[in-house]
Design a protein around this nucleic acid. Structure first.
Length: 548
RNA sequence: GGGCCGGUAGCUCAGUUGGUUAGAGCAACGGACUUUUAAUCCGUAGGUCGAGCGUUCGAAUCGCUCCCGGCUCACCA
């Protein structure tokens, strides 16, 4: 053979033995077709969820025919311990005849374990609601026995059979008819340890959902939390809307936007960084209680608490103020806790009562969400955790210097706030509503009537994380315009004119009702309510570098 | 961007001071088994040790560069 040809042959062979595992699975796929089954399945009506099937365990009986031609129906004893199972097997043997009788059931799921014991296979299938054992016996399934030989871990199958218990008490479907739904050509991860590499877990989230314990329930909890918040808001007559995500001017927060371009209009656009300005326009339009829960995009760093796209809830309530938003925040969070606990049996969390447990695990500790949450002023917390009188500018500046915060030529309140972020926020285990912020660091907030130094604002801190932020909103268009200009004063005229949202100011000039406004970071709230330390574990597909 | 740690079979991981042909479990393949529980038992096959360059008689192991990831600090909110 010429050298070149040999080189080509070896170059090509890697693709072929790239995976003998895959080749084996493809061979079985072909065999399934030969046996007259569609290896990619089809509609499968009237199946029950595994959770529903498990709930029917009590219907299983043991029928013993008697001499008169009738039969005696025996209820099954508890079969939880080895002794109980052994005793039941002995009892069955003593009866001489009789059989387990259970309801006919139909299930579908993914094969996650496979124990092949000669002419009887034990197959564990998994669906959204849990796992269930299927017993496939050569005698019981007849022609489908050959199909069962083509099953691999990861395949999706359907089963018709009788719900029974095995000799060891395990609830099982004794299969009578098998159906093939889809072949897993790619081999699944280790059946026991699953995926460990955090990158693979995020990149191939589908595998993580199937194989990593706790992942699917956590994301289902996320969905329940979101649904519950919508419920709470609906009950209080808030109207959900959908604002634009493409903004000419990305306003409503101080963050770097992602930039994009519209071809037909030939204009530059930004992905939104906040929901605020359009929701306020809608309040002008008469939607007095309005909210949006949606994705915002910030072109900034990634950390355990930051993903470039995240879900934000913003709520505005006409004729309310920041204090109305405190009650609403509490209602949303406690409602969400009740919603996720309603689906987890109380015992599963080691809690014998059926009452809602507001103490949720977090790292090695717990967070007590029992309402009402603590409410403390900014200055109180400052004195408590920074150990310095917040009114004493000299002492605050001295403390700032000592922890490396620059003070030269900066506003005392700005220095104070740097110290607050450094010394106080991390110490706030919470939940605690921090109120009465210095007005100078909250330019877009209404001030207290009796004390213009204090802004009507709160932030909710839990475990050092800022979870919610609320204001009594500014509705004076002239003042708003003024503050926009001040905010942009560092930029060139060209830039500042470009960034001034004139339409928003124009809207305010038609009169926006006085209102309370609230923002909640949904991802962070989900982290706290599910005991998850990383934001990437509550986002199904966090941003990753492209695969190389 | 800085510091620390890591990348070995499809998956989970060992691999000594640089020393023979790189190992195990699971998964796969062949065989036994109709009540198993990560089934078990016997046998077989499976590797560009992240990539490249270098040091050396000899490199998974040492050095340099790069790629990828994790943790952490910084940045950002």
């Amino acid at each position: 053979m010429p050298e070149e040809a040999a080189a080509i042959a070896t170059e090509e062979s890697p693709t072929e033995d790239l995976s003998t595992l895959e080749a084996n699975r493809r061979a079985k796929l072909a065999k399934i077709s030969e046996l007259g089954h569609d290896p990619w399945g089809g509609r499968f009506d009237d199946r029950s969820l595994i959770g529903e099937i498990r709930a029917r365990a009590g219907e299983i009986t043991y029928k013993v025919p008697d001499e008169a031609g009738g039969e005696t129906v025996h209820e099954l004893p508890p079969l939880e311990t080895e002794e109980q199972c052994k005793a039941f097997r002995q009892w069955k043997a003593d009866q001489g005849r009789g059989e387990l009788v259970g309801p006919k059931v139909r299930a579908a799921g993914r094969i996650v374990l496979h124990r092949d014991k000669g002419k009887l296979h034990f197959i564990d299938i998994r669906d959204l609601t849990g796992d269930l054992q299927v017993m496939v016996g050569m005698k019981q399934v007849g022609d489908d026995w050959e199909l069962a030989q083509q099953f691999d871990l990861g395949d999706l199958i359907g089963v018709d059979g009788t719900l029974i218990r095995s000799n060891t008490g395990e609830l099982s479907i004794l299969a009578e008819k098998l159906h093939f739904m889809a072949k897993s050509i790619a081999p699944p991860p280790d059946k026991h340890s699953g995926l460990q590499d955090p990158e693979l877990r995020q990149r191939q989230r589908y595998l993580d959902l199937i194989h990593t314990e706790g992942v699917l329930p956590r994301f289902l909890d996320r969905t329940r939390i979101v649904a519950s918040i919508r419920n709470t808001l609906a009950q209080q007559n808030f109207v959900e809307v959908e604002g634009p995500t493409l903004h000419g001017i990305a306003g409503g927060a101080a963050a770097k936007p992602f930039q994009t371009h519209h071809n037909a209009l030939d204009i530059e656009l930004n992905l939104r960084i906040a929901l605020e300005l359009h929701l306020k326009r809608l309040m002008v339009g008469g939607i007095e209680r309005v909210y949006e829960m949606g994705r915002v995009y910030r072109n900034e760093g990634i950390s355990q608490k930051h993903n470039p796209e995240f879900t934000m809830l913003e709520v505005y309530q006409a004729y309310g103020n920041y204090e109305s938003m405190m009650d609403l925040t509490e209602a949303c969070i406690t409602g969400a806790i009740e919603a996720i606990q309603a689906v987890h049996p109380a015992g599963a969390r080691g809690d014998a009562t059926s009452e809602v447990n507001y103490c949720l695990p977090w790292g090695g500790t717990t967070i007590d969400f029992k309402p009402p949450f603590a409410r403390m002023t900014y200055n109180q917390l400052f004195a408590m955790h920074a150990g310095v009188d917040p009114e004493d500018e000299q002492a605050v500046a001295k403390l700032a210097e000592s922890i490396g915060i620059p003070t030269e030529g900066r506003h005392p309140d700005v220095i104070k706030n740097d110290v607050f972020e450094e010394k106080v926020e991390d110490a706030l285990e919470g939940p605690v509503f921090v109120t009465d912020y210095p007005a100078s660091i909250c330019p877009l907030t209404k001030r207290k009537r009796d004390n213009p130094e204090i802004a009507e604002r709160f932030e909710l801190f839990i475990q050092g994380m800022e979870v919610a932020n609320a204001y009594t909103e500014l509705n004076d268009p002239d003042l708003q315009e003024e503050l926009f200009k001040t905010q942009l004063s560092g930029l060139s005229d060209e830039d500042s004119m470009a960034k001034m949202d004139h339409d928003f100011i124009r809207a305010l000039r038609y009169g926006m009702p006085p209102a309370g406004g609230l923002g909640i970071g949904i991802d962070r709230l989900v982290m706290l309510l599910t005991g998850t330390q990383s934001i990437r574990d509550v986002i199904l597909f966090p941003l990753l570098r492209p695969e190389r």
